[in-house]
């Protein structure tokens, strides 16, 4: 395909008049590009760059601990997830450690999620369900700290920020295996 593009460019130099009619069949240009799109402004990228990978590189400045998080949780989350995160009616967020291999596995942040960064990422983008994206970074750090503390993973006074959050080791960090399918006899 690229090869064709080069031939096309060569032909174009010789017969410029035909350009308008031939261009529809042309593939990408010499450099493999079509010359489409606009350079993305750094500020525009920064505003959208909210996905947090396990290394935490995209985490924003700010921080919070479980104590401040308790207030955020009570005000913004408890009505749906229960006063302690165990009651529902919406997904249970606390408990379940040690149950994954049992007859009644309970998959929660504490028992199942392999990375703490995922909690920050998801809460910031999708919660509270009826007002997604409405928490400040400090509030997201704090409520993440509250949920990790409630799951017995960090201390009450641990401040989560862009340094400490990626360093949290979740209980089920090594619980995931690659997909081996087809897996049937």
């Amino acid at each position: 395909m690229r090869e064709q593009g080069r031939h096309y460019r060569a032909a174009l130099a010789l017969v410029p008049v035909l350009a308008a009619t031939t261009v529809a069949g042309a593939d990408a240009g010499d450099d493999g590009r079509y010359g489409l799109g606009h350079a993305a402004a750094p500020a525009h990228i920064a505003a959208q760059d909210i996905a947090i990978a396990p290394n935490g590189a995209e985490l924003p400045p700010g921080g919070g601990d479980a104590r401040t998080g308790a207030a955020v949780y009570a005000a913004r989350c408890a009505a749906c997830h229960g006063s302690s995160g165990r009651e529902g009616p919406d997904p249970v967020l606390v408990g379940g450690q040690g149950t994954l291999a049992s007859d009644a596995p309970l998959q929660t942040i504490g028992s199942y999620w392999p990375y703490a960064t995922t909690v920050f990422d998801y809460v910031r983008r999708a919660m509270p369900f009826t007002a997604p994206g409405s928490l400040t970074p400090d509030e997201v750090y704090a409520v993440t700290a509250f949920l990790l503390h409630a799951n017995g993973i960090i201390e009450a006074d641990t401040v989560l920020d862009r340094e400490t959050l990626p360093a949290v080791v979740m209980p089920n960090r090594d619980g995931f295996v690659p997909d081996p399918r087809p897996d049937l006899p």
């Binding site: 947090i52 994954l100 596995p105 990375y115």
Partner: peptide, 21 residues
């Protein structure tokens, strides 16, 4: 990235407690 939709959800819990991602 290990987003919520590829860790908490859309993974397959096995009898030994491990899960396929």
């Amino acid at each position: 990235w290990r987003t919520r939709e590829e860790t908490s959800k859309y993974t397959d819990l096995l009898p030994d407690g491990s899960a396929r991602e």
